[in-house]
């Protein structure tokens, strides 16, 4: 399991310096329980978010993602368990370390853009001067300096989204929590924001994505966790999870005169399925599950019967893993 891999990595760093281990995870969620009346929203959920990672928190609607995020943001308190942020137990000082863009988001409609940003930055603990300086930087970056004195209701939805993003990252948070970040963003803005997120990550900001949209996860995340029905089902490095969920299935393309013979030989040893990768010149396209054979076994059958033009392991997409786990 990917989980084993992580522990190995941890024990390795443990030898080098102890402090590094503590700093290794920007966020640790330990057995957090949250109940609303009789309903359990989080059932002893534990997560480790490594510093500097882009961490995908996945799960269907109602899985408990938002409940967890609200606990991390100290909006609600857990009924049990604890949260360690940046090596310390979660406390009010952490508010300035987190940038949070909730799924249900908006701004004061009748307030001027600049004043609004200043206010929200000050609530995050920034001084007015510092906030002004940062705002100038971001407003210039997004080329929106002329909006300072405009009221939010005068802006288009796309414009407001830019302001929304600035408000989230203005105070240089160490941890950025984005709940369904791309919902409601038009493609141009979504791309712009995505680039900014990646740049922030390069500069050391850890990022938690909460989403049920898998494409963005596939593209950006290096760690994922899957929450379903209040429980954490999967957690780990994206590659490890994928490795864990691989089915030893290969997609092959062959140029051959002897389709029937090849098919016969393949079915003797392997499980064969339909595939759909795009290619120009294959006579036979197949999905082959190795079972207890090796790739060399498969290759030898293929090369004996024709010219191999395509050979690739079918890596499960996050979407596959998601659907597979959730529907289990």
């Amino acid at each position: 399991m990917g989980f084993i891999f992580v522990t190995k990595a941890l024990s390795l760093t443990l030898i080098t310096t102890k402090k590094y281990v503590i700093m290794n995870n920007i966020l640790e969620v330990k057995n957090v329980v949250k109940q609303y009346g009789d309903y359990t929203a989080l059932n002893a959920v534990s997560l480790n978010v490594p510093e500097g990672s882009i961490y995908g928190l996945l799960g269907p609607n109602g899985a408990g993602k938002t409940s967890l995020i609200r606990i991390i943001n100290q909006i609600t308190l857990p009924d049990a368990g604890e949260i360690i942020l940046n090596g310390e137990k979660l406390n009010p000082n952490h508010i300035s370390m987190i940038g949070y863009m909730p799924e249900e988001r908006g701004l004061y409609k009748s307030m001027k853009v600049g004043e609004q940003c200043l206010y929200l930055a000050q609530l995050k603990g920034m001084s007015k001067q510092e906030a002004k300086k940062q705002l100038k930087y971001w407003f210039e970056k997004f080329e929106i300096s002329t909006w300072w004195d405009k009221k939010l209701q005068e802006l288009s939805k796309g414009m407001a989204q830019k302001v929304q993003f600035i408000v989230t990252v203005l105070h240089n948070p160490k941890l950025l929590i984005l709940d369904e970040p791309f919902s409601g963003f038009d493609p141009v803005n979504a791309n712009l924001i995505k680039d900014e997120i990646i740049e922030l990550n390069k500069n050391g900001t850890s990022i938690i994505f909460s989403t049920h949209r898998m494409e963005s996860v596939e593209e950006m995340c290096d760690y994922i966790a899957l929450i379903h029905k209040s429980n954490k089902l999967i957690e780990g490095k994206l590659e490890d999870v994928k490795r864990e969920y691989r089915t030893n299935t290969f997609q092959v393309g062959v140029m051959t005169q002897n389709i029937e013979g090849l098919m016969y030989q393949l079915t003797q040893k392997f499980t064969i399925g339909q595939t759909d990768f795009k290619s120009l010149n294959d006579d036979l396209k197949l999905e082959v599950q190795l079972g207890n054979h090796t790739t060399n076994d498969l290759l030898s059958v293929l090369t004996q019967n024709g010219q191999v033009t395509h050979f690739a392991e079918k890596i499960p997409s996050v979407n596959d893993i998601f659907i597979q786990t959730v529907s289990k």
Partner: peptide
């Protein structure tokens, strides 16, 4: 306005 959650993540 849906700003409430942003505000109460700060205060």
């Amino acid at each position: 306005n849906r700003i409430i959650e942003i505000v109460i993540s700060s205060v």
